[in-house]
Design a protein around this nucleic acid. Structure first.
Length: 421
DNA sequence: TCTGGGGTCCTAGGACCC
DNA sequence: TCTGGGGTCCTAGGACCC
């Protein structure tokens, strides 16, 4: 059934990633003999800091009806003795790296799609490692034996179908979804399980009388385009298993933006508090910017108010910079323009419009102070990387009650892009 | 039940230019 | 003079993913 020119693509997906990784870590360090995966458990935020949602859950917890994204409060209603542990993102990053290392042994073309998902192009690798099914089984058992967690593997001729395949059966399963299998395996599925169909699109499709992927595949293309514009084509293609995206050997130079944001444990109503938090967020974001070797030209600030409404405000710069103080000056200006004084729950900083540091043009608009700051920033970064982030703290943070580097979800840079294949 | 933090891409409207 | 069409850039917001 497969044509010779067809590619073979794997999607490797860690089963309940955060929870599995916590379980493995706790067992391997001897902290406990209880495997979190065997009891109703979850990785969740801190309710006292208003970050109380479920990030990952065990299968026993799922049996209680607990869902990812719901509040811890709601989860405890369903399961009062749910064991909840806090997330440790540095650990997840390491686990992810370890998995990628194994995957790269089976193909030079591995794309990290998120912290817990990778695409692997197995095309013409069969002469080295056997049939795709043999290779998938070997990868699966090696990850389990060497790293201690289980993965799902979806196999097809393109990324879209491989991704759908990986969800067909779990956990610890290998599934194929080739074109001839679509009517049986994919088309009966609810349309909202299709990649690209989310909270907004699914109800619209339902209103058009489309409830399954099969119905979407056979829907009138003109009508889809009329309703969804160019996205109508994408949806129609996906439902028909058509996708030409390449497995991209991802490297961090492809990163398009760096953001840092935080939910604050109280409603901020003072300018000075907001400024400290924004400075702290900016410091971390610009450290990552410098570490990646970029300069930014588009700076934006986002505000989520206590009523959960969101606003953002951005500014295109007529120069490139990677200076913490320079960026913060813009952030502060944007915040003051954007804030209407209502209580704030969440603040974010985002940097885009990158250019590689060495390609940044010299510009008359470049503030003179930039070079001086730039040198200082790099000295500070160097000290922090050598002696730890606490080794240098800006004076304004001393005795302020604010942390000098807010956020810091990840130590290593990895792309988290996921809304396109 | 009042919802984290990290991303990407698309679109619409306004400003501005020729 | 009161009126055109086309292009690009900028900004805000929405949709999607994990």
């Amino acid at each position: 059934m497969l044509i010779k020119t067809d590619k073979i693509i794997f999607l490797i997906d860690v089963n309940s990633a955060y929870l599995s990784w916590e379980a493995v870590y706790r067992l391997s360090t001897g902290q406990t003999t209880v495997d979190l995966r065997d009891i109703p458990s979850a990785v969740g935020g801190d309710p006292e800091k208003r970050r109380g949602i479920i990030l990952a859950k065990s299968y026993p917890a799922k049996d209680y009806g607990i869902k990812t994204g719901e509040t811890l409060y709601a989860a405890f209603q369903k399961c009062p003795n749910l064991k909840v542990v806090k997330p440790s993102y540095g650990l997840y990053s390491q686990c992810s790296d370890a998995m990628v290392e194994i995957l790269r042994e089976y193909s030079p073309s591995v794309q990290r799609f998120s912290v817990d998902e990778c695409f692997l192009d197995y095309t013409s690798m069969d002469k080295h490692f056997g049939s795709y099914m043999e290779a998938a089984k070997e990868i699966q058992s090696r990850i389990q034996n060497e790293l201690g967690f289980t993965v799902n593997i979806g196999i097809s001729t393109n990324k879209l179908l491989a991704k759908v395949a990986s969800d067909l059966k779990k956990p610890n399963a290998i599934s194929t979804l080739f074109h001839h299998e679509m009517p049986e395996k994919m088309w009966p599925l609810s349309v909202d399980t299709l990649f690209g169909v989310g909270r907004a699109t699914a109800p619209k499709l339902n209103r058009m009388g489309i409830y399954t992927i099969g119905e979407l595949a056979n829907a009138d293309l003109d009508y889809l385009v009329y309703t969804f514009k160019s996205y109508g084509h994408v949806l129609h293609n996906y439902a028909n298993g058509i996708d030409h995206a390449e497995v991209r050997e991802s490297n961090y130079t492809e990163v398009k933006g760096i953001g840092n944001s935080t939910t604050i444990s109280y409603d901020v109503t003072e300018h000075s508090d907001a400024h400290m938090i924004l400075f702290s967020l900016t410091e971390k974001a610009s450290m990552r910017l410098r570490a990646a070797g970029f300069m930014t030209s588009l700076v934006s600030v986002s505000i989520r108010r206590s009523d959960l409404t969101r606003h953002s405000h951005q500014k295109k710069l007529y120069f490139y910079t990677d200076s913490t103080l320079e960026i913060y000056r813009v952030i502060k200006f944007l915040f003051e323009e954007a804030w209407d004084g209502s209580p704030i729950r969440h603040l974010g900083v985002r940097l885009t419009g990158f250019i590689a540091h060495e390609h940044a043009p010299y510009s008359l608009f470049d503030p003179k102070s930039n070079q001086k700051h730039s040198h200082l920033d790099h000295v500070i970064d160097e000290l922090r990387s050598r002696y730890g982030n606490q080794s240098i703290v800006r004076g304004s943070f001393l005795h302020s009650g604010f942390r000098p580097l807010t956020g810091g979800v990840i130590e290593e840079d990895y792309p988290m892009m996921a809304s396109t294949l």
